[in-house]
Design a protein around this nucleic acid. Sequence first.
DNA 1: CTAGTCACTCGCACACTGTACGACGATCTC
DNA 2: GAGATCGTCGTACAGTGTGCGAGTGACTAG
Lengths: 234, 234
Amino acid sequence: MKDWIWTRERKAAPARETLSRDQIVAAAMAILDTEGVSGLSMRKLGTKLGSGATSLYWYVDTKDDLVDLLIDEVWGEIDVPEPELAGWRAGALLFGHSLRSAVLRHPWLPEVMYTRPSIGPNAMSMGSRGLVLFGAAGFSEHEIDLAMGSVMSYVLGTVSAEVATREMVRKSGRSEENWVTDILEQAQAVAGDYPEMQKSVRRRTSMDLDSGLTENFVFGLDALLDGLQARVKK
Amino acid sequence: MKDWIWTRERKAAPARETLSRDQIVAAAMAILDTEGVSGLSMRKLGTKLGSGATSLYWYVDTKDDLVDLLIDEVWGEIDVPEPELAGWRAGALLFGHSLRSAVLRHPWLPEVMYTRPSIGPNAMSMGSRGLVLFGAAGFSEHEIDLAMGSVMSYVLGTVSAEVATREMVRKSGRSEENWVTDILEQAQAVAGDYPEMQKSVRRRTSMDLDSGLTENFVFGLDALLDGLQARVKK
DNA sequence: CTAGTCACTCGCACACTGTACGACGATCTC
DNA sequence: GAGATCGTCGTACAGTGTGCGAGTGACTAG
C-alpha cells in the first residue's frame, strides 16, 4: 500500500532551526495563489524559503505529495453549516457559496484537483459535515451520498469554468466592466457561422463579469436544490 | 490580438508527401487516450509520426495550440439532439449522456479543459445546437444561457470527478467488482475519525463501480433538469 | 569530554521537457 | 536555368523533478 502523506507522521524532534512542512505548505500556497501551477517549481520554492531545492524532499516525498497537501489545505477552508442553524436547504446554499469562494481564492485548484483523489483529513472532515447536513434533509442513506455528490460536482464544475473565464479576462488586461477580450473577439469570429452562439456571447459579455458569473452560479444551484428537495422521502 | 489556431488557415499547397495537421491531431489523440497528458511529448509524438519533433511546429505554434485542437476534436463528438425529436427534456438528457461518454472516452480532458477557453469551431457548433435545444424549453433568452451552462457544468464537473475515481481504481490494479483499493483503504484510515464518512465510503465501495457512477450521474442530472423545468415561463 | 548517531541540508547529476534558430532539401513558378 | 516558397530537422538552451551521497550541526551514551 502506498505510503500516503496524510498518515506519515512528521519526523520527531525539531533539533536546530529548520524548515517545517507547515512553512513549506504556506510558501507553496502563496506561490500557487499568485503565479498559478506553472509558477510553482521546487527550485523556486526552495529559494523562497532560503534553502536548497532538494531540502524540501526531506518533508515531502514528491512534488505531487506537496500538491496533495495544498489541496487538502483548501478543503480546510470550507465552511459547512450544521443543519440545526438554518435547515439543510439554507445550509447547502451556504456550503455551495463557501466552496465557490474558496476555489476563487485558489484558482489553481481545478487544474490539479481532478487528477487525484481527495482523501486528506480536511477533505474527510468536510465530507463528514456535509453528510450530516444533507442527512438532515430526510434523504435515505444512499440518497444522502448522491445528493451531496451532485451538489459538490455542480459547484466545482461551475466554479472551474468560472475560473477559466476569469483567468482569461485577467490575462487579456481589459477592463472588467466591458470584458470583450481577444478571446471573445475570437469566439465571435468563429461563432459567426452560429448565430445563436453569436447572440449568446454578446448577451454574456454585455453584463458585469462578477454579477453575471454569480447569477449563473446561483441559478443552477437553486435549480439543483429544488430538484433535490422534491426527492426527499418521495 | 492573439493569432488563434482556429482561424489560422493551413499553409496552402501540399507539395510532396508531407505531414498534416489532421495526422498530427490523430496521433496525439491516440497518445492522450492511452497514456494521458503526461504521456504526450512533442518528441514522442514526432517519432510516432516518423519525423523529427520540431517538424510539428510547422503545423502548430505550440504544444498548447495542439491541445486546443484536441479538445475541440472532442467537442466534435458530442451529440446534441434537435428538440423536435423528443422534446427538450429528453434531448437534454441525451446531450448530458453524450457529453459524459465522450469525456469517459477521453479521460485526459478534465486535466486540461479548465485552463483555457473552449472557442473552437466544434465547441461553437455544440454550443449553438445546445442553445437551440434549451431554447425549445420556453426559457427567456437569458435563462437559456443559464440553463445550458448549468447543465454543462454539472455534467463536466460530475464526470471529471468520475474520471478521477476510475483512474485511481484502474491504477490500483484491483478488480472493478470489489474496488476497495489502496486509496479507499487510506480513505478509510483517515476517515476513522469521521464515522459518517466512514460509512459513506463503505456504502460506495460495496456496489459495482460502473453502475454506481452512472446512478450518481443520472440522479443529479435528473434533479437539475427537474429544477430547471420548474423555472420555465415561471 | 569524546564518540557515535541521528536529523537535516544541499550540490551535483541525470533524464526529460518545450521550443527558437538556422541550415538544408524538395518542389513550384518564372 | 534561377528564385522563391514549403517543409524537415539537428542542435542548443533554459528549464523541470528528483536520486544520490557527502556534509553539518545537535543530541545522547559512555
